[in-house]
């Protein structure tokens, strides 16, 4: 089951790290990095049902309740 309740141990640090990861990259390079990041996180999660729940939620954030 997809976790949608707050789950980040250090939200501000994680978000800042995400932005910093893109520093100095062109837009194309950033898009490529995002794609790699999504694939790495997908593999970490692994479970197909959770992944498709997350994809649906990303496509339609209002769809959640």
């Amino acid at each position: 089951m997809l976790t949608t309740t707050p789950n980040l141990t250090r939200p501000d640090e994680s978000y800042a790290a995400l932005i910093a990861t893109h520093e100095g990259l062109s837009e194309a390079e950033s898009h490529a990095l995002n794609a790699r990041l999504i694939l790495i996180l997908m593999n970490h999660i692994g479970d197909h049902a959770i992944l498709t729940d997350a994809m649906r939620l990303a496509r339609d954030p209002k769809g959640q309740g």
Binding site: H31, A32, A35, R36, I38, L39, I40, N43
Partner: peptide
């Protein structure tokens, strides 16, 4: 194409990407 090439980039180093 962006995701396809991201998979290929990762596949050189990470076995999980080879399954894709």
């Amino acid at each position: 194409k962006l995701f396809r090439n991201a998979v290929l980039t990762l596949a050189e180093h990470l076995p999980f990407a080879r399954t894709v």
